[in-house]
Amino acid sequence: MNKSSSILKKASEYLLTFLVILTLNFFIPRLMPGDPFIFLSSSEGQVTITYSEEQIAKYKAYYGLDKPMIVQYTSYLANLLQGNIGYSIYYNNSVLSVIGKRVIWTVSIVLAAIFISCLIGTVLGSLSAWYRNGTFDKVLYSFIIAISEIPAFLIGIMFLFILAAKLGWFPLSGGIKTFANYSNSVEKITDILHHAFLPVLTLSIVRLGEFYLLSRNSMIAVLTKDYMRTARAKGLHNKRIIFRHALKNALLPIVTRVFLSLGAVFSGAILVENVFNYPGVGRLMREAVMVRDYVLIQGIFLFVAVTVLTMNLLADIIYRRLDPRVN
């Protein structure tokens, strides 16, 4: 297969995936019971004011929700093509700017968590592989398997309880102190890091097992390869054997997994953000679901889907860069 046709094939694969996601994205929120106008003028979760039938009809007409599904669907797609992803019913603001305000928080903790879990996981995994079947490996292996079985929200709540509520080392909620005046930017950054610490820690622990197991397996496989024997026969320094010969091969699946796991980390972030009341996209999504803000929900889903697809694409590209065997 030549290069351009394989690119074309890849592109059409991504396009098809994207279309399926868009469709699901449109229909799933609309399958939920209730509609946005029950919640429109109430605070979150509480129904205080009810609209009259007449008003609801008027709003529905205004947002185009009275039209048949298929018409709504096509106009949704048409709007998307123009880059218009809609206007939040609840926040009275464009979806893009609502998400935009939140996204930086989520992306920061997600990236930090991936970085930390990948780094620690790979180092521990490689060490485990090196000392395979030794005490170190056996203890570490059981320990990591055990903690990666605990659900994210449970770990989060535990930290919240002990480290934040009981010991008071960390703030209980939020991403930054409300109404604070900072004398300089260092102070502000410290405060943000202070708030981010527990969410990042929770997310990192949740992802650690995956990277640990992956790098351990990958390293074990690499260590038995013939080229490792060749490298040892050549009398090279251990450092070069491990980092140039072994790790370069063992890293291949790990790097790919970093990108592929972004989607999973996002879903983890939704839970963790809600536990820590962290002002990211995850919490925004919960709020949007609570008030049936279809347009916003769609927007968030779309954002997540685009992110995951982009990361898949990046994984593909980077793998090609790293492994000369993939043309």
């Binding site: 013939d226 060749t230 040892r232 492994d323």
Partner: peptide, 21 residues
């Protein structure tokens, strides 16, 4: 002593050379 004094040509296999170098 390895390689400088005693060198070996291993049995040929796809994996005998490092695939990413």
């Amino acid at each position: 002593y390895r390689w400088g004094k005693i060198a070996i040509v291993f049995q040929n296999s796809l994996d005998v050379l490092n695939p990413v170098l």
